[in-house]
Design a protein around this nucleic acid. Sequence first.
DNA 1: CATGAATGAGCTTTCATTCAT
DNA 2: AATGAATGAAAGCTCATTCAT
Lengths: 228, 228, 228, 228
Amino acid sequence: MTRVAGGRPGPPMMSAVAKKAKSVQQERVIGEQGERTRVKLLEAARQVFLERGYSAARVDDITQKAGTSHGAFYLYFANKQDVLEALAVATADHMYALADELEGIEVGEAGYEQLRAWVERFVAEYERHSPVINAWITAEMEDSRFDQLGREVLGQFAGRIAHAIARGVDAGLRHPVDPGTAAVALVSMLERFCYFWLVRGGPFKRDVVVDTIAAIWYEALFGQRKRA
Amino acid sequence: MTRVAGGRPGPPMMSAVAKKAKSVQQERVIGEQGERTRVKLLEAARQVFLERGYSAARVDDITQKAGTSHGAFYLYFANKQDVLEALAVATADHMYALADELEGIEVGEAGYEQLRAWVERFVAEYERHSPVINAWITAEMEDSRFDQLGREVLGQFAGRIAHAIARGVDAGLRHPVDPGTAAVALVSMLERFCYFWLVRGGPFKRDVVVDTIAAIWYEALFGQRKRA
Amino acid sequence: MTRVAGGRPGPPMMSAVAKKAKSVQQERVIGEQGERTRVKLLEAARQVFLERGYSAARVDDITQKAGTSHGAFYLYFANKQDVLEALAVATADHMYALADELEGIEVGEAGYEQLRAWVERFVAEYERHSPVINAWITAEMEDSRFDQLGREVLGQFAGRIAHAIARGVDAGLRHPVDPGTAAVALVSMLERFCYFWLVRGGPFKRDVVVDTIAAIWYEALFGQRKRA
Amino acid sequence: MTRVAGGRPGPPMMSAVAKKAKSVQQERVIGEQGERTRVKLLEAARQVFLERGYSAARVDDITQKAGTSHGAFYLYFANKQDVLEALAVATADHMYALADELEGIEVGEAGYEQLRAWVERFVAEYERHSPVINAWITAEMEDSRFDQLGREVLGQFAGRIAHAIARGVDAGLRHPVDPGTAAVALVSMLERFCYFWLVRGGPFKRDVVVDTIAAIWYEALFGQRKRA
DNA sequence: CATGAATGAGCTTTCATTCAT
DNA sequence: AATGAATGAAAGCTCATTCAT
């Protein structure tokens, strides 16, 4: 299962919006030192979004944490949204890769183990990217470009899962499950649980979490259910 | 199933925080006209939170929508957080009531129908309260008092569900499921799905949603599974 | 000769642009006290534009001179351009009135005296409005809405004058004069001379100025000249 | 009529102000490549002043148009005023030369043709130098050194013209004209007309313009008029 | 009770200028 | 000579909150 089949659907790396935002300060060429500063700022932004949330984050918090001057920020980003977009696009790419790995999970004990491993991977990724994901979700409400990106990612996940569900056994089922709907529900569960757990700090044990979620997913994917 | 068993756990109706916020402006006695204005402001706030999100909402947006003067706002609320708290507390009460109704759901086709009906109720409540819920979630990140309230509500839900799961059949199970964890996972799913669907506007049909979610819940509550 | 025939050509009092700029802070209703503050700000702006020039003028200079807070400015104007526009529109109206008075000047000694009186009036108006006129001219370069307004005013003047020239004797002329071109040239002269004199502070005596300019205008309007 | 009689009046080629500005960066010796870069920057500045006006022009615009690095600018100029001064001084020299050519224009048809030719030359020069002239006029308001230079140039022009007027016929005059005042008025007309026409883009035909202005000048210089 | 004017802190963004390489 | 990264001082603008009427 390579990343060939999936990957980011729409446009390439840098969105049109960010490009336009940049056009005020004309297109700068970034050298080596510049790149280092840019990365420092990105990391700082990630941190600050985690600590204060997206809307409460001030550009000053970011530059301070990055140890640069205030002005430096605007050398590399048009504004707060722009940093977030850079982070979000990178995160989205990880998510697409993750979604691709869902393909090919099968019924049976081996399938369960695959699923379990996948959930584990998701949790790990979520943990790394949670500041971005949450900033992103917050921003979705205020900025339509993030909304779009969010829909793309969700769609990508849901598509893969729905596919898996549809392939599931469909004889002697007990209750009706719609693949598309169930797919979004499962992703919702995963995302939100990780949020309550890893961001908000719920009292859960990693193993138990992974097993429980994998089990619920497994049932939804391959469990006995009524014909819709 | 009355509200006796459950209900708001900790402190009584009006939280300490709100009291304090109020005490800045010395305890005003609100007459009949005043009460009407207060309600107009609350409704307006709910609307504005829906349209612009909590952080982007300005006091001015609220008073404008309410048709009052800017100053009037501060006659009834200490600040934006204070309005949200008033709304959130009301919403929380509905949620507690909802959680109570979960008690007593049983295995079998009748149980499935009960569950289905409950999910339907949840969806309806979410629809009514989504502006508040989302504002609340946003605010949790920036204000610990909402964090606390959120934990209480989530705990209340999860407790009920965990209880139901624990009573479920526990012979011949296939995969391990931890009641406490599963409970939070299921609530997460419900909340988040409703968000993507009702707030963000996903393309789902109400019947299908309710059936699908009820089915997943049913499996998680009563499905065949291994001892944890 | 009343103002009926002339007056502002295009749209009424407040331009579409200013309206749009205002729409952020939603349409406020201004009471009596507000109106007073607004006027204080307008007067202060006029002063500051005179002292520092339009581009160098900061909003803070204006509020300081007006004795208000920084924020008050934005209660009444969207930005610096907006104040200038308010001033410019008022000035433009005076200019239209002035242009109207040009109509009906005739050949002969009486006509010369009319012309002389008119120039005197123009000088007086220029003196009163010079801060605005100069800010306006500066702004034309950076903002097309002022460019438009400027063209309207210039056109209005030039039209009246060209009309007068065209009616002038056209027999036995010495040199070719195109009415439209000459009109703009004469207005240019008047405007610019007043600038060098009243704004820059040239060493001229009022009587002499008025006589000299009136004489040049008179020659251009009614002087002997060749058929074009 | 050589440039001997006229030429720049006061101090020699490089003004005291520019010297001082330069002395911040210790007197650098500029080689051949350096000279080329300096010229590129000057040309670029001229362009940018034309396109955006003086106050809105940023150093970055200039270096970008010149194709140099941002830092290079400060190798050759102390700041924006400094570039403008370099351009303005060069322009002023052209203007002095132009003023010199006014000397010796006589009454009669031949004189008119001389005048016409001179106006044509003025227009051509204005066209070439308009970016500088306008930047200069803008800067006069904010920087007294340009004010001084401006007075010098205007004085030079006006002096020549006043001289010519004074020599004009002074018998049987119709209206009073003061030579000094008229001179400034005529220059004002010329400058401002060219501005409205060539910078702002008025709808005039070159031939007509030259004829009309020459005619008005001619009348003012040699026309019938009353003793002052 | 209600109003709307006034305030000023807080953030954002821009750009001239300096400096290390 | 040239480069482009970094800096920080201005401005600009917004909005929660207070106050006089």
